[in-house]
């Protein structure tokens, strides 16, 4: 199956990618495109390797087959220094936020600036405060990461991800485990950052409602293959039963509620045996 879109405007394109972990094939010859300036979402059930895909794009994992091109550069053919240069132009928001626990919020946001630029402390201060203002947490600059709520930690991590003004941001499950208010704040933030900074965003998520609210394009992945792709409204109208079940969250459908087992009545009657 070839589902490459091959848009000339794509910033990241994944071609015929295969990757497996142990004996489990996580991606089987999959092709995806991520357009510049757009929010593209990758959705699918838990355990389909969505985070793995982000790590492949970031060059932390190496694919078995296929290629990933970011801004015209094949990520896995780059030398280490070139890969690091490319990564400076990518931001990644981890599920846990991945803030450095031994530094204050301010130092965390300043971290990439201090590591990669030789700006003076006063310039760094200005930049950090601007980034913190953008996520609405300028007042929290002196807190330590363990004093932050999950939603705040994710927003700080977002401020850190945009510290070097990247061209794109990869979001790993940004909506998981958030209360409705933080959720709203994050959804709003991702959308507005994308528009105001002209970023390209890639969101990996299984939160259907929030993701389809802001995504420009959605890929649905299951069992290593791309099941469907299109704009949120196209996906919602999909004829596939599986897609319908996933999007509406029905308990039973093509994906059964019950784990495969022998007949219920037989099982109950065959007493005395353990299995």
């Amino acid at each position: 199956m070839d589902n490459s879109v091959n848009s000339p405007n794509s910033l990241v394109s994944v071609r015929n990618l295969s990757f497996s972990r142990g004996n489990k094939k996580i991606f089987n010859n999959i092709s995806l495109d991520f357009e510049r300036g757009k929010i593209t979402a990758i959705m699918g059930p838990s355990g389909t390797g969505k985070t793995t895909l982000l790590k492949l794009i970031g060059g932390q994992l190496i694919p078995e087959q296929g290629s990933i091109t970011v801004d015209g550069q094949n990520v896995h053919k780059l030398r280490r220094a070139e890969l690091y240069t490319l990564r400076k132009r990518m931001g990644m928001l981890f599920q846990s936020g991945a803030l450095l626990t031994d530094m204050s919020v301010f130092d965390n946001v300043a971290f990439p600036l201090r590591e990669h630029t030789s700006l003076t402390e006063s310039m760094i201060r200005t930049l950090v405060l601007m980034k913190l203002q953008a996520v609405g947490l300028r007042g929290a600059r002196n807190l330590m990461p363990n004093e932050l709520s999950g939603g705040m930690a994710r927003r700080i991590a977002l401020a850190r991800a945009i510290a070097l003004d990247p061209m794109m941001i990869l979001y790993d499950e940004p909506f998981t485990g958030q209360d409705p208010i933080s959720l709203g704040a994050l959804v709003h933030l991702i959308k507005s950052l994308n528009n105001t900074l002209g970023l390209t965003s890639i969101i990996v998520s299984h939160d259907v409602r929030e993701t389809s609210a802001i995504a420009d394009y959605i890929y649905l992945i299951s069992e290593g293959r791309c099941v469907d792709h299109g704009t949120p409204s196209q996906i919602q109208k999909s004829a596939s039963e599986w897609v319908q079940q996933f999007m509406t969250g029905a308990a039973d459908g093509p994906v059964h509620f019950h784990y495969p087992a022998k007949d219920y009545a037989d099982d109950l009657l065959s007493s005395g045996k353990r299995y």
Binding site: Y84, G91, M92, L100, F111, P112, A157, R160
Partner: peptide, 17 residues
């Protein structure tokens, strides 16, 4: 713990070894 909380991974993605 830095590994478990993705801090090392995050650092790598910030182009810091």
């Amino acid at each position: 713990l830095m590994k478990a909380t993705e801090q090392l991974s995050g650092m790598e993605m910030m182009a810091v070894d």
